[in-house]
Design a protein around this nucleic acid. Structure first.
Lengths: 159, 159
DNA sequence: GTGAATTTACTCGGATAACATTTGTCCGAGTTATGGAGG
DNA sequence: CCTCCATAACTCGGACAAATGTTATCCGAGTAAATTCAC
């Protein structure tokens, strides 16, 4: 059970984009250099966020990525599902059909599998927690100096 | 983000073993037939549970797997960590070091990365939920007939 | 100068390769019950 | 009847192969600003 690195990359990217919101769209090149990440692959991930309506991409010169909505309205859940897909970590393949009921069983399987239900409950707790935190919260939790430092450093790079 | 099928298999196996506790150790062959799963691979998974002290394995003829402790004392968390390893789904690779601080930053990174903290919080909620449910709870949640039916069917097979 | 053409700086999407993990298979070795042979 | 031995039924562990998923790279196409050039 592992969550792709793209999640970390994307969250940090969102955080940065949030801080640079006034500076206009940020090209992928800058973000990749910023965090020293593979440019093309990071792009792919951010494209996924764009398809999900979390980021907006402006093509052409002076284009790049930017937040599509206010940081308060982007939850971590949004980002995670955009990247990892809407699929739940635990997928019930209904093994039990084979086991407890045998070929006949019918009625017993109308209600969902107990194992799946238990897992689902845990996933819901996870999702709830993710949905409860926004990019704005991340900004607030970061050291006070980070925002300003990021803006300064970016301005210097962008000349 | 996906959780291996072994988790589902193992939980159903534990449930079955719990019901068949009086019938002595259950050979892997039976379990695999039971759920129509690949025998050798299921064995691997159950061996992992054995190493974790959740199951006990008795070698030799009439051997097989059995619960190592009471169903009340086996949490879903135990099973999941035994199979997927103790590693957290989200791994922080500290890419921020590159980004916000640049080469100098030092002091700012003493406290953990905000993104990682947020993710950790969600994982904790997940773990807590998993740790709160035991195999005994699964037994209780299952349809009343399942236990007896399982025992009967097993007796017939082993007959 | 003004407008059109060219260049430059971006994103988008698909194709593909390298790599890791999960899933599945196979085999040799060790352990214990069972059944039979010899006393 | 008792003992010893062979056999059968299991698990354990490692090595290996196949399938899948993640990470990464490359390329052609589209879009928009900036630059160049013609007039």
């Amino acid at each position: 059970m592992h969550m792709g690195e793209g999640v970390e990359w994307s969250l940090h990217s969102c955080l940065t984009l949030a801080w640079l919101r006034d500076a206009g769209p940020v090209p992928i090149r800058r973000l990749a250099d910023w965090f020293d990440l593979p440019q093309e692959y990071l792009k792919k991930r951010l494209q996924a966020l764009t398809r999900a309506g979390i980021l907006a991409s402006t093509p052409g010169a002076r284009g790049g990525f930017s937040l599509a909505r206010a940081p308060e309205r982007i939850t971590l859940m949004d980002v995670v599902t955009a990247l990892e897909g809407p699929l739940e970590p635990f997928v019930c393949t209904e093994i039990r059909q084979q086991g407890y009921g045998g070929r006949g069983g019918g009625r017993e399987f109308a209600r969902p599998c107990g194992v799946a239900t238990a897992m689902r409950r845990a996933e819901l707790a996870w999702r709830r927690e993710l949905a409860g935190q926004t990019v704005a919260d991340l900004m607030a939790a970061a050291p006070a100096a980070s925002a300003e430092r990021t803006r300064r450093r970016y301005a210097r790079l962008a000349g």
